[in-house]
Each structure stands twice: as structure tokens, then as C-alpha cells.
């Protein structure tokens, strides 16, 4: 399914422009997502990669309008889904889209299901809300869904409680719930992180199958570069709330440009290669409060940092067609005179 066909002519299904999501800390607002723009075309699988704290989950919550009330809020930017501006919708209208047109799989299959309701009840809820199905119809549909996500003996599982299922099965239930209304877009936030590799393989296979049969676009948020390589068409690499690199999956893996992407790729041990020493990125992502206000946010951990990186804020610019990088090393427009000192 991972053919390298582009999606040039299609109008984007989801368009995010200049998204800024801030959290309030000690009375001040700090941007956790800082000016992120991207498109998702119908049937496209977009990967979002980055370390914890890079803002990838906050971004998905912003799209779903599920930010914790009173603490986090969207300061700037537009989120256009299917021609509708999501950030302007009130809760009632948003509820009609959430779960129906955009489905979401949450990270923790252990805690995202309600322990006191049966699987069937929890799955039927969205069907009931969006399609006004009767109880009996909904039950039939739920069994069908469970079967579709590969749960054996669905007619029994439908009456079971979450604790009676294994981790892999719970994640399947979460997927069934997300795809119940055949959404056009599925946001999967670390869908396989808590699972064993053999179960992960099952879930990825399942997602790919559903993407094809349901003509669904997927935003796959993960930190696992292996998963990205196997499933995505296009990849956003995020660091400290910003997109630092965007490219199609082959280009990104063959020719990573940003020093962060490059290090990330070389820091994972690989099965097919022998490496004496892994690359490592010194230090950690600066906290929201300590984020540099000027210059590149990666400067303190970057092995290729120059003097200018502290003062000139790099822009996300197209290095090659379809390949964007946020790094002064690849920017041509800034004053090059400073470079001669190097």
C-alpha cells in the first residue's frame, strides 16, 4: 500500500496553517505548538515524529478541539477540515464531526476505555449519537466492527468488560471505536507504543487494510521511525513545537537534512546493520519556560550549530521540491557574510 504516488491534484482534506497552541504557566502563555502548518490529502498517511515534549500530541488534541479547558488554548492559526474551520465551531457542532468525520485512537489502550461499561456499550455510543441507530441495529453493527478489526468470537467480546481483554485486543477495540462511523480522517496517537512487536505488526497491518477499504486518511503520531518507514507516505519531524523537516518518506530516510532528523535516524539500533556506537543527542528538549526566544530551538543540542544559529531564527523553507527544512545550513536568503568567518 505504501506506493510512492503523490497526491498532487487532490484538494487537501485537512489543512492546518500557522497553528499555535499555548499553555498557561504561572499566568503566562507558552506555545507548545508553535506555528505548525501542514496538509493531509484524502487517503494519505502522514507520519508525525518527535521526542516526547515536542508537541505532537498537543497538535492532535488541537485538531480535535480537545485541549484541557482553561489551561490550553489555540492562540493563532486555522484548522480547515473539508472546507470547515474547526477552530471556530462551538462544542455542539464539533461533536458532530468528532468521532464521525475524524476518528481518534488514543495512546493508552489500558486507560482510554471505561472500565465499568461493556465493550458493546462503549462502541455503540458513537453509532447511537451519530446515526441514531436502535439498540439492536447498533449491536449488530458493533459485532461487525469487532470482526472487522480482527477480534475472534466478537459476539462474546461485545458483552465483556475492558479488563477481560489483553492489551492488543483493547487496542483493537479502540480502533473499532475510532472507525465505527467510517471517518475520513483517523488520528492515531502512538497506536502501538504499549504493545509487543508481534501485536504491533497485527495492528499496523489492520490499519493499512482499513485505510484502503475505507478510503481513510491517517495522521500517525509516533516516535518509532521503523513504524513510520513502513506505513507513511509523508513525514513531519517535530522539535520543540515546530516542524523542522517535512518530506515524503523515501526522501526523508535517504536524505535527511536537518541535524535533528539525521541524529534521530542514527540513534536507533538497527537489526540489519552493525554499529559500534550509536549517535546520541546530548541534553534534553528544553522545557516550555526555558525555550530560546530567538534563534534556532535546537541550537544547544546541535553538533553543527554556528554562531548565527543563536540570533537568526530559521524559517521552514523548501530545500528541494517537496522537501522542507528549518535550518540555517540550508537557508539561502539569510545574510551569508557571517558564514565567511566559519
Amino acid at each position: 500500500m505504501k506506493n510512492m504516488t503523490d497526491f498532487p491534484s487532490q484538494a487537501p482534506l485537512l489543512e492546518v496553517t500557522g497553528l499555535e497552541t499555548a499553555f498557561e504557566i504561572d499566568g503566562e502563555l507558552y506555545n507548545a505548538v508553535d506555528g505548525v502548518s501542514f496538509n493531509v490529502k484524502p487517503k494519505q498517511v502522514l507520519g508525525v515524529v518527535g521526542e516526547s515534549g515536542c508537541g505532537k500530541s498537543v497538535m492532535s488534541l488541537s485538531i480535535m478541539q480537545l485541549l484541557p479547558k482553561g489551561i490550553g488554548k489555540i492562540r493563532n492559526g486555522q484548522i480547515t477540515f473539508n472546507g470547515q474551520s474547526l477552530e471556530k465551531l462551538d462544542d455542539k457542532k464539533m461533536n458532530k464531526i468528532r468521532g464521525k468525520d475524524i476518528g481518534m485512537i488514543f495512546q493508552e489502550p489500558m486507560t482510554s476505555l471505561n472500565p465499568v461499561f461493556t465493550i458493546g456499550f462503549q462502541l455503540a455510543e458513537s453509532l447511537h449519537n451519530h446515526f441514531k441507530l436502535s439498540k439492536k441495529e447498533a449491536r449488530g453493527k458493533v459485532i461487525e466492527l469487532l470482526d472487522q478489526v480482527g477480534i475472534s468470537r466478537p459476539e462474546r467480546v461485545v458483552d465483556e468488560y475492558p479488563h477481560q481483554l489483553s492489551g492488543g485486543m483493547r487496542q483493537r477495540v479502540m480502533i473499532a471505536m475510532a472507525i465505527a462511523c467510517k471517518p475520513k480522517l483517523l488520528i492515531a496517537d502512538e497506536p502501538t507504543t504499549a504493545l509487543d512487536v508481534t501485536v504491533q505488526a497485527q495492528i499496523l497491518e489492520l490499519l493499512q487494510g482499513l485505510q484502503e477499504t475505507n478510503d481513510m486518511a491517517i495522521i500517525l503520531i509516533t516516535h518509532d521511525l521503523g513504524v513510520v518507514a513502513e506505513t507513511c507516505h509523508e513525514v513531519l519531524v517535530m522539535y520543540a513545537g515546530e516542524v523542522v523537516e517535512r518530506a515524503d518518506v523515501v526522501t526523508l530516510f535517504e536524505n535527511p537534512k536537518h541535524p535533528y532528523t539525521e541524529l534521530l535516524m542514527r540513534s536507533i539500533p538497527r537489526l540489519d546493520e552493525e554499529e559500534e556506537k550509536l549517535a546520541s543527542i546530548e541534553g534534553i528538549v528544553p522545557s516550555l519556560k526555558n525555550m530560546p526566544r530567538q534563534g534556532c530551538k535546537f541550537v544547544d543540542r546541535c553538533p553543527k550549530a554556528m554562531e548565527e544559529c543563536r540570533t537568526i531564527t530559521p524559517r521552514l523553507s523548501e530545500n528541494l521540491p517537496g522537501h522542507e527544512v528549518r535550518c540555517l545550513l540550508y537557508e539561502t536568503s539569510w545574510n551569508r557574510e557571517g558564514m565567511s568567518a566559519k
Partner: peptide, 21 residues
């Protein structure tokens, strides 16, 4: 081994997907 996702988008891997838990 076949289930481990490899960070190489060009490689077509023959994945053996085990059934069940």
C-alpha cells in the same frame, strides 16, 4: 524478527503476522 519495523521505506519486508495473543 520479521515483525520488527525497519527504518528503511524502500525495503519490502515479508512480515510474518502471528495470529492471536
Amino acid at each position: 524478527i520479521s515483525a520488527v519495523p525497519e527504518p528503511d521505506p524502500k525495503r519490502k519486508k515479508q512480515r510474518i503476522v502471528l495470529q492471536g495473543d
